[in-house]
């Protein structure tokens, strides 16, 4: 083990690690050690000559050491003295240059766009006609938009759901306050900060919320389940349900909300929904975004149990969106779910 450790410290990776942690590589240290250690005595010379020479060598070495030290110091402090000024100026110049380049690229791209409404434009191709004419027959969804986003282009929607999930993960990394690493008083302070001015246990709000939240959740479920029949679908229905949960949280506080929605719930529901979606639709990545015939029958368009996989994918997307909305709200407010 010790030998392994020594080996690691000598290797390039180890030196890089030390450099990033302490700000200097082992190279300096070793150089210093070499300079500080006495040279091997030359035995054959007479004593006096030897002493004189050693004295001279010592003085030279000391001088060199001082010089090196000065160089090191200059290099080390360069970043904080002159370097920062240089970097600030360079940053401004580069930012302006980057913006100008971006403006030029965007203007150039806009100038070469085909005129709006021209029938020869590349967007007027067979795809749109195919979707409109055969979409209902092929996907079984009356709502053509649902047929497009969850059947023809389902792998795009997978990316969208993952974007939401990634956003909430980033917020989680940045804002989550871990309960294990902060003491009790800090937690109490946070709790007090959170609801210092907010009306607690407002009777009017609670009465209304008791009446409204079930209706809002029902409406969200209705929008999700009818996603393939009428306008709506996973994203909008999930947002409605998330808003209902947030309303409940605001009326009754975290204690009651945590009875049915904790961090574990969020983890389980999001991961299961996303995995289901990925498992059922990610084959499109390998088939070049081509549509494979589904094993599930499309059924009669207009019925709830029709359109193949679309209702189930809608449910998965809706659950992810609902959990994400709620998690974003609680993370920004309290730093925890």
């Amino acid at each position: 083990m010790a030998r392994k450790n020594e080996h690691y410290e000598e290797s390039l990776l180890g030196r890089l690690d030390r450099w990033t942690q302490s700000g200097e590589s082992g190279l300096d240290q070793r150089m210093m050690d070499d300079l500080a250690s006495p040279p091997p005595p030359a035995a054959s010379l007479p004593q006096k000559e030897l002493e004189r020479r050693m004295d001279r060598d010592d003085r030279m070495k000391h001088h060199m050491l001082l010089q090196e030290q000065a160089t090191y110091d200059r290099i080390r402090t360069w970043g904080s003295v002159r370097g920062s000024r240089f970097f600030r100026r360079a940053y401004i110049v580069l930012a302006v240059l980057f913006c100008l380049a971006l403006i030029a690229v965007l203007l150039r791209a806009t100038a070469t766009l085909p005129p709006f409404g021209n029938p020869d434009n590349p967007m007027h191709n067979d795809v749109a006609r195919r979707y409109i004419e055969d979409g209902m027959e092929e996907t079984g969804a009356v709502n053509l938009v649902a047929g497009m986003i969850l059947d023809y282009r389902a792998f795009d929607t997978l990316g969208e759901s993952n974007v939401l999930f990634t956003a909430v993960c980033a917020v989680l990394i940045l804002l989550r306050i871990s309960k294990e690493h902060s003491d009790a008083t800090a937690m109490l302070e946070l709790e007090a900060d959170d609801r210092m001015y907010e009306p607690q246990d407002d009777l009017i709000l609670q009465t209304m919320v008791r009446l409204l939240v079930p209706l809002i959740l029902l409406f969200g479920i209705y929008v999700i389940l009818n996603g393939h029949i009428s306008p709506g679908g996973g994203f909008s229905g999930g947002a409605v349900m998330g808003a209902g949960l947030i309303l409940y949280l605001n009326a009754f506080g975290f204690e009651k909300a945590e009875r049915f929605f904790t961090f574990r719930t969020f983890q389980t529901v999001s991961v299961i929904s996303l995995s289901f979606y990925a498992l059922s639709k990610s084959y499109s990545f390998f088939t070049g975004a081509n549509h494979l015939p589904s094993i599930i029958q499309t059924g009669i368009p207009g019925k709830i149990f029709s359109a193949g996989l679309i209702p189930y994918l809608n449910i998965a997307v809706g659950l992810v969106v609902c959990c994400t909305m709620y998690a974003l709200y609680t993370l920004f407010r309290k730093g925890d779910l």
Binding site: P199, D202, L205
Partner: peptide
């Protein structure tokens, strides 16, 4: 009619306390 008076009430109460 059910929701907006509640919202007004909450804003008013918040104003009173803050």
């Amino acid at each position: 009619w059910m929701t907006s008076p509640v919202a007004s009430h909450l804003i008013g109460r918040l104003q009173l306390t803050t």
